[in-house]
Design a protein around this nucleic acid. Structure first.
Lengths: 113, 113
DNA sequence: ACAAATGTTGAGTTGATACTCAACACAATG
DNA sequence: CATTGTGTTGAGTATCAACTCAACATTTGT
């Protein structure tokens, strides 16, 4: 069973020995909000807040973003303005790609230019 | 200058000789809402409503989605749950791909399996 | 055991999103 | 020219996202 956003956040934060209050202060939200999120009492924060959290915790953005269902505004911009990108992603969706497949696509991407 | 969402919708709807009321009824929204959207007095509807509109007008979803900046929930799900997909799209974003590039990637996608 | 630090809970707030409803204007057809 | 179909406008509403604030509970270090 896949771990939730809250479980992942709680684990990472504890590993780094940071309190909810300290994290919350640095991110710029109330500490009680962090608590609720860690216990999955509230849905994950906005993509922007998730990214801040990852920066404070010193982990790659994708770790939490991928457990959140949220899409960063940068990525939204790429998709939301390109017919080609939307078509591509619709196809990708149908094929249920693995992380390995995506890695291969990243390689192809580099060869493209 | 790129055409707006409203301009595109208005043009397509007129080409198909459908009234705002008929479209609105079939989509399930108020006709006055369609009017405001066509004149860009309100931002584009939700991704789901846009998709319905495209189905009624019998055009591919991407046509309107790409002018809306919105991301469909299907695509959100692909991205928002895969570390690999997020990484890939972050890289893609940096490279400023053209629609042609995306087409090439779609081809590579098919070869992948 | 006590205080200080840390975590949890309920209720409420703020702003944005995605619309509706009623009134009116215009156009065109018989 | 009156009716019918079509489009526009202003104001209002419902729901949701993303939080805050205050109160209380639990854990931890000495």
């Amino acid at each position: 069973m896949k771990t939730t956003f809250g479980e992942t956040l709680k684990q990472v934060r504890r590993d780094k020995s940071i309190s909810q209050r300290e994290l919350a202060d640095k991110v710029g939200v109330d500490f009680s909000y962090i608590s609720k999120i860690e216990n999955d009492r509230l849905p994950p924060p906005s993509a922007e807040t998730i990214i801040k959290i990852c920066q404070i915790l010193d982990i790659p953005n994708e770790v939490l973003l991928a457990r959140s269902g949220k899409v960063s505004s940068e990525i939204k911009e790429v998709i939301g303005s390109s017919v080609g990108a939307i078509r591509f992603l619709n196809e990708a969706q149908d094929m249920k790609l693995s992380d390995d497949d995506w890695l291969r696509l990243s390689d192809m991407l580099k060869q493209l230019k």
